[in-house]
Amino acid sequence: MSAALRRLRWSPRWLTYLVLLLAAFFFLGPVYLVVVTALKEPAAIRLSTAWHLPETWHWQSFAVAWDAFALGLRNSLVLAVTATVISALLGSLNGYVLSKWRFPGANIVFPLMLFGMFIPYQSVLIPLFTFLRDIGLYGGLGGLILTHVVYGLPITTLIFRNFYAEIPDEMLEAGKIDGAGFFGLYARIVFPLSISGFVVVIIWQFTQIWNEFLFAVTLTRRSSAPITVALAQLAGGEAVRWNLPMAGAILAAVPTLIIYIILGRYFIKGLLAGSVKG
């Protein structure tokens, strides 16, 4: 009996597809419900007809949500782009140092850095808040960017360090013989090789920062609050009318979804890098 036949008997093909389709329904059902709810007239939203298609397509919810969220989207964009770029660059440098310029004590420093990625941020929140206030960075995007850069360092450093570990030391030795120093090696050899590393880190950091809520709600005033805070405040109150939170949820989700759909392959790489050894 062939192996293929065995497989078939163990679990028929159609059952596989049935289960996969059921799973797909589980994952896509909420999307359907969100979209139809966002497109209904507020008065037509009833719990009992939640799954029905809208009788009239009501696109205005998006215009209203856009007005409510434009500022939040802009803040999130500025925040996520800036913090991502800075933390990626620093992470790259750190990873380069930790993988190629091993110094005494590196074995202690690295785990100490990594620990910062796992701490519950509640355990630093109160001092962080008072610190930012005392240096005048509370409330604005600057303070939030600084926060995300610092707490992003462990993961970016880790990903780059693992990435650079794959670059053979011989390549650097060859560069050294040519007289290149620390920066020369980085600029000529390491950086050009790390483009895909950057893609992974940038995707990871961008989605993390875009989606973050705790720091955002604690450290910003309204005019610089990111989209997650705006959405939570709109949806968290008396959500009698559901079209707005749903339209807002779509707006908040679109940027990371686009990145994910376009760069999904790298995303999975990023996921794997997210576990310490991958």
Binding site: F27, L28, L33, A249, T256
Partner: peptide, 20 residues
């Protein structure tokens, strides 16, 4: 389809599932 929710914010997920 299985992976896309991972790209969302917990705030979005929470808002959506509160309605679900």
């Amino acid at each position: 389809v299985f992976l896309y929710p991972f790209a969302l914010s917990f705030v979005v997920t929470g808002t959506v599932w509160r309605w679900m």
